[in-house]
Nucleic acid binder design. Structure first.
Length: 458
RNA sequence: GGCGUGGUAGCCAAGUGGUAAGGCAGGGGUCUGCAAAACCCCUAUGCGCGGGUUCGAUUCCCGCUCACGCCUCCA
């Protein structure tokens, strides 16, 4: 029985899909205006593991992730500039080119850490669903949830009685906060833009006609419009990062539920942050690392994935280089274990592994089950089969290594053979020379009980 | 001010009302020309602090403290 922690109820709940055997999940995707940080990546890895775990448990999963290529504003809430247009201006490129460039970058990063990237319709772009977003705003307008200011159409949060139910914060409590509100035309600080007008006399690169005037959709409305269009409402699981709980997801709920009069999603799952030096890592904090930074330091992207798997998704992960190194060492060990196994035909999965996943996606526990399996008394074939199955969830690239001894170049192999003979003749000088020769070709030779073992230099 | 999360060995990190998974690092041993690997063994009487409940708490309750996050764009 799969149990998941539902942010909406703040409790562990048994997962029951709307349609038997099927799961519809929606994940808030990147805003394509700068490179992904490893913090962003942690959340996407969590969603990918969720997707894979659901499949292992027998569900047919539809995983939709949007690409925000318009409408995400920087700075003071609804008053700032559009992130994509701003990045474009800075780079001297068009907004469309910027969006395309950063989308290609994140797809590359996803691929490098073995995240299966949603594609086609399952990766909708906000700019391709302008019609749906306008429709949604019109529905809200008809139902009386909107009002107009000089710069756009806004959602009136005071009209939605349940506003704040996800974060457990009432409107009045938010109001008491120390935030500075710069948009004095809004009725309430929590109100948010559904449609923004293009600035007077200014031509935006991304703008569309609408019943209210030329402009562009607000950030929150895209998710509501696209999830309804692609998954229906309600759908099963909505995920994202914890920082979205109190604003973005709250706003999505308000829009969607106000417009359609039914729940948006049944389960809300949120991935915790990755911290650096015990503090939040963020694009605006200036302490953000990218996957390329890790690679530049000689790390394998999958070592980062392993690192993430070692912490429960609802716990903060304090990123350190030492921790990443430990993860990489562990991954190397797993790889060499995998190579030493044989391809088996079994479809067994250790129950401890499955139970760990069913327990709110407890990947650290699942990883422990992997190690226990490797240390167990099962045969190489059984272990090979089990590791292969478990790797469909882990995504550590172990499955393809099972039963695949390293491909050793002939010349290296010949040197190793020659060294073996030298050793038998107790010609240690020659033996050491040959070890050096092998090393110069990028391989490490190690003696074993009945011969030697060659591994590529890290 | 409001809402929320967490403090477990050198590091990372699970977990439980009955005496602490796993990984990394470290130590000892076997082995070895050397080295490494491999294998075996060891490494928290202890789970932020103080109370309480209990036969018994790291696990439940209360208080405190520290750290972090959200409430303003950010996974």
């Amino acid at each position: 029985m799969l149990k998941l922690w539902n942010t909406a109820t703040r409790s562990l709940e048994e997962f029951k899909p709307i349609k038997k055997g099927k799961v519809g999940m929606y994940a808030c995707g990147p805003t394509v205006y700068n490179p992904l940080t490893i913090g962003n990546l942690r959340t996407y890895i969590f969603e990918d593991v969720l997707h894979r775990a659901l499949e292992l448990l027998g569900y047919n999963v539809r995983h939709v992730m949007n690409v925000t290529d318009v409408g995400h504003l920087v700075g003071d809430g609804d008053m700032g500039e559009d992130k994509v247009e701003m990045a474009a201006a800075k780079a001297g490129k068009s907004a469309w080119d910027i969006a395309k460039m950063y989308e290609e970058m994140f797809v590359k990063d996803f691929t490098r850490v073995n995240i299966r990237v949603p594609s086609g319709k399952d990766r909708p772009h906000a700019t391709d669903y302008i019609r749906e977003q306008i429709d949604l705003v019109q529905t809200l307008e008809k139902k009386g949830f909107t009002y107009r200011t000089s710069d756009g159409i806004y959602f009136d949060t005071s009209k939605f009685a349940e506003y704040g139910k996800l974060s457990g914060q009432k409107l009045e409590e938010k109001e008491a906060g120390a935030r500075v509100e710069v948009n004095e035309e809004k009725y309430h600080p929590a109100d948010f833009a559904l449609w923004k007008f293009s600035p007077e006399g200014e031509k935006r690169q991304m703008e569309w006609e609408s019943p209210w005037g030329v402009g562009f959709p607000g950030w929150h409305v895209e998710c509501s419009a696209m999830s309804e269009k692609l998954l229906g409402q309600p759908f099963d699981i909505h995920c994202g990062g914890v920082d979205h709980i109190s604003v973005h997801h709250e706003n999505e709920i308000a829009q969607s539920e106000a417009a359609f009069g039914k729940p948006l999603a049944n389960y809300w799952l949120h991935g915790e942050f990755l911290l650096v030096d015990g503090k939040r890592m963020g694009k605006s904090e200036g302490n953000a690392y990218t996957l390329d930074d890790l690679i530049a330091k000689g790390f394998d992207p999958l070592a980062f994935r392993y690192y993430c798997l070692g912490t429960h998704y609802r716990s903060k992960l304090n990123f350190t280089w030492e921790g990443l190194e430990g993860a990489q060492n562990a991954l190397h060990k797993l790889r060499s274990e995998a190579r030493s196994l044989s391809v088996g035909t079994g479809t067994e999965i250790p129950s401890a592994f499955v139970e760990a996943l069913e327990d709110d996606l407890n990947t650290p526990k699942a990883l422990a089950a992997v190690w226990d399996t490797l240390k167990s008394g099962s045969t190489r074939e059984e272990k090979g089969a089990m590791l292969t199955r478990m790797d469909t969830v882990l995504g550590l690239g172990l499955a393809e290594l099972v039963g695949q001894p390293l491909d050793i170049p002939g010349d290296v192999k010949a040197l190793a053979e020659e060294r073996l003979i030298a050793r038998q003749e107790k010609n240690w000088k020659r033996s050491d020379e040959l070890r050096e020769a092998i090393k110069s070709k990028g391989w490490i030779v190690e003696d074993t009980k009945d011969g030697y073992e060659l591994t590529p230099e890290a």
